[in-house]
């Protein structure tokens, strides 16, 4: 009887239902988060670990390679935002309009890269960007009379390669977000705009853009942290974590280098905490500017 009461209780049931999530959230997210935070104040040794206070953070301030990694990640994040919000939005609007035929095919083609393993696609991109004359990129530039380049040895071209991989991979995903956002816009609004004699551009500017804002903010938020946390693309493009003059090193790449390659977990955790703080600051700033925290909008 008691069990039945418990199971049918409207007060308890919701907690039971969310329990699996809460448990996994605590075990796999909150617990590692707290442990990582405490570890960042330690020197983790083989047999024992020592408290070192802020030593790891003090070292981060002086660590030039870390600064390069942060700068690379921030640059990458910035450019992915510039490329991966307007263009997918444009494609989504096009696909939502009557201008495009065979929409399913386009959607599938654009989404397919997201399903491909980065390990495989990264290797293929590495081969395309090889400095050897038979690489696709060098074949193209040579055919255009521009000569050949050491793509993965120079700062600008290394970043370009990373951005091309990012665009190839994420355009379809972001486009799908925007498409679902577009679907939720009431068509009667467009009809009303038509009756008022609005042009296509006006409809986009005054109806689509404002109503798409929640989707845009969401895509912006996930793109900020995806950009800052990028690692595997760079790892595959340079066939390892070492790129010439660290042009492809990212914050997570540096964390991996310290934590796994050099087995310095304490320092790696400090890197992780800095990444967390940077990501949180940027995202909170962005969310505040976009008015997500404003009262009374729901």
């Amino acid at each position: 009887m008691k069990i039945k009461n418990f199971l049918y209780s409207q007060k308890v049931a919701p907690y039971v239902f969310v329990l699996p999530f809460i448990l996994s959230f605590f075990f796999f997210w909150v617990y590692p988060l707290i442990t990582a935070f405490t570890m960042s104040f330690q020197d983790i040794g083989a047999i024992k670990s020592d408290w070192v206070g802020f030593a790891n953070y003090a070292k981060l301030l002086k660590d030039n390679v870390f600064h390069i990694a942060v700068w690379n990640s921030v640059k990458y994040m910035f450019f992915t935002l510039v490329l991966l919000i307007p263009f997918p939005m444009l494609f989504a609007v096009l696909l939502d309009s009557n201008l495009v035929k065979a929409k399913g095919v386009w959607k599938a083609i654009l989404y397919m890269p997201a399903l491909t393993s980065v390990v495989i696609s990264g290797t293929l991109f590495r081969l395309m960007f090889t400095e050897y004359t038979t690489g696709q990129m060098n074949m193209i530039t040579a055919a255009l009379g521009l000569g050949t380049y050491k793509w993965l040895k120079m700062g600008w071209s290394g970043m370009l390669a990373l951005l091309i991989v990012a665009c190839w991979r994420w355009t379809g995903v972001n486009m799908l977000y925007f498409l679902s956002g577009l679907k939720s816009i009431d068509t009667s609004l467009y009809e009303a705009a038509d009756i008022d004699g609005a042009t296509g551009w006006q409809k986009f500017k005054y109806v689509t853009l404002p109503l798409l804002k929640p989707t845009t903010v969401y895509v912006l938020t996930i793109s900020v942290y995806a950009g800052l946390a990028m690692f595997l693309e760079s790892y595959m493009l340079w066939a390892g974590n070492s790129s010439p003059n660290n042009i492809g090193l990212t914050i997570v790449g540096y964390l991996y280098k310290r934590g796994i390659e050099k087995n310095d977990m304490g320092y790696a955790c400090a890197v992780g905490v800095v990444l967390l703080v940077v990501a949180l600051i940027i995202n909170f700033a962005q969310l505040i500017v976009n008015g997500t925290f404003k009262k009374g909008e729901d």
Binding site: F25, V252, I260
Partner: peptide, 21 residues
């Protein structure tokens, strides 16, 4: 935000384990 931030850490672990050279 919290869950996202937390998943950053989880993400690191996952990515890191995908291959080390």
């Amino acid at each position: 935000c919290t869950s996202m931030a937390a998943s950053l850490f989880v993400g690191c672990g996952g990515a890191a384990s995908e291959g080390g050279v």
